[in-house]
């Protein structure tokens, strides 16, 4: 498990990062925490002749909460997410989800930007970000632009980010109501067999808004508009839960792997979603 030879760069300015990306094109890749990229390189599933470390770039490590808007720098680690008091109050689902990613060692290194930019359907943050209707800020040779998390994922490892762009931050409108991130995994450090992110708003005993996204049940995270809609206007009773489950099952497309066959995954996806909704509702 030794990667192919590569050149290592540690620029201090974003302009230099972009220049390197432009120069080497597909042969270059940025590295954040390295905890998805380096394993791929060691397995020689990825050969990256030019590796550009983002650790020395200033200004990517901040978390700000202002005017109902949360902004998280791309290099904020999953560990930072868990330990940020303001964030825990403003968007507790982030902490709940981050605690279910890997183990403390991985979370010390792994970043929010890396987790959402990676494009692996097993990553947990993409679904959470879709649930929260986050926006990703990208910077590239043509300047800055932003893309909604719900539009970002195209296929496994394929995203709306251009090769020469870097993801700089994630912005989230402060979420309302109850929340839950429910994940079934085989063991610590495992990607989800099925996971569900739910935000839900309750008024006078009725659901007025619901947002639902699923992890590792398709080649991208699945934001299920229909599942959310199935809850709105209901008291989130058994019938509503079943309707939401059915709607979600219509959106996902799991594949068989060592975690189990498709029928099992679909069944578990339904169970996990129901549990997530119930927990979120109890907190709403």
């Amino acid at each position: 498990m030794i990667p192919a030879a590569f050149d290592y760069y540690r620029p201090t300015k974003m302009d230099d990062v972009i220049a390197l990306l432009q120069e080497h094109g597909d042969d270059a890749r940025v590295m954040a925490g390295g905890h998805s990229l380096i394993p791929m390189m060691k397995l020689r599933m990825a050969e990256i002749p030019h590796l550009i470390d983002l650790q020395a770039i200033d200004g990517l490590n901040e978390i700000s909460i202002e005017d109902g808007q949360i902004t998280i720098g791309a290099m904020v680690t999953q560990h930072d997410l868990i330990n940020h008091a303001g964030l825990e109050a403003a968007a507790p689902i982030l902490r709940e989800a981050a605690l279910q990613i890997a183990d403390p060692q991985v979370r010390y290194m792994g970043t929010v930007g890396g987790n959402v930019a990676n494009g692996d359907p097993g990553n947990d943050m993409p679904g959470v970000m879709q649930c929260l209707d986050a926006t990703f800020a990208l910077v590239g040779p043509d300047g800055e632009r932003s893309v909604a998390a719900r539009d970002f994922y195209e296929a496994a490892y394929m995203t709306a980010r251009e090769d020469e762009e870097v993801l700089t931050s994630v912005s989230i409108p402060a979420p309302q109501g109850g929340y839950a991130y429910e994940k079934q995994k085989r063991k610590i450090g495992d990607y989800a067999t099925a996971a569900a992110a739910v935000q839900i708003v309750k008024e006078d005993g009725k659901c007025t808004a619901a947002s639902i996204a699923m992890t590792n049940l398709s080649d991208t995270p699945i934001y299920s508009v229909d599942a959310g809609a199935a809850l709105v206007g209901t008291a989130v009773d058994a019938a509503a839960l079943n309707a939401a489950k059915a709607a979600m099952l219509g959106n996902i497309d799991p594949t068989e792997d060592n975690r189990g066959p498709v029928a099992f995954k679909k069944h578990v996806a339904g169970v996990i979603l129901a549990r997530a909704i119930e927990r979120a509702w109890s907190r709403a």
């Binding site: 079934q184 085989r186 067999t193 975690r259 189990g260 066959p261 099992f264 069944h267 578990v268």
Partner: peptide
């Protein structure tokens, strides 16, 4: 007896 076999 992993999750899916127990489920099965």
């Amino acid at each position: 007896h992993d999750h899916w076999r127990i489920w099965k």
